[in-house]
Amino acid sequence: MAEKFAVTRLPGFTTIAVVAFVALYAPILTLVAYSFNASESAAAWTGFSLDWYRLAFQNDEVKNAALNSLIVAAFAALISTTVATLAALGTTRRAAFRGQTAIYAVINQPLMVPEIVTAVALLIFFSSVKLATGYTGLGYLILAHAAFCIPFAYLPIRARLEGMDLTLETAASDLYASSWQTFRHVTLPLLMPGVLAGAMLAFVTSLDDVVITEFIKSPGQDTLPTYMLGQLRRQMKPDVNALSALLLAVTLLLLAGVYLLTRKRAD
């Protein structure tokens, strides 16, 4: 009998795996460690301190940027998840139709088109809108983020829908539920874990975007990542480490949430 190909049995597999993990995680761990460094220099460890966190929390610019980030991410997640839910319902609840592949491509377009291209395109488009309306608020960022967050919200929702037993909806209609009642009382509650997972993924994706935000933000407007980038350009200061560590913590927390919601249930 032919043996199954197993990548884990190739010579050097363990070594390469260790090197890859170190390359991926050592910088992150170093960053987190140095966010607790008492010294202002990144070169030497002089003792444990929470000063950089305190400093970051006291900084008004940081607070402003964090607030912007949260507002943009929250609204972008809300909008993209709503659109993604409708898109998922439209693409899974029926037999295969003509142009299905094209529709998937359109929905997932932000995953494939280079971000910089989208950024330049949005910059040009929004500039003319700004000129015409005079509006310079967070709306542009929210819309732009909502657009590129759609595929991240779409995928877990679609996966959840594809795993759902259509007989349940037939049963609901048999038991006198109108199509709206069926959606409200059966489809949506069963879809909820997928919707929440999609919303969290969209939120995280929006939270750490730099490229598109950098291009289309109005002057003086900053989200946390663009603020940090600006700080680094001037002077390397450990409060950026502290902010990075905080962003990392939020992201990990949300991804843990996604994992809990999408894993297969025991029952």
Binding site: D165, T167, L168, T170, A171, A172, V186, P189, L190, D267
Partner: peptide, 9 residues
Amino acid sequence: FQSYALFPH
């Protein structure tokens, strides 16, 4: 229904 189709939630 053959599969019962009980609402799991």
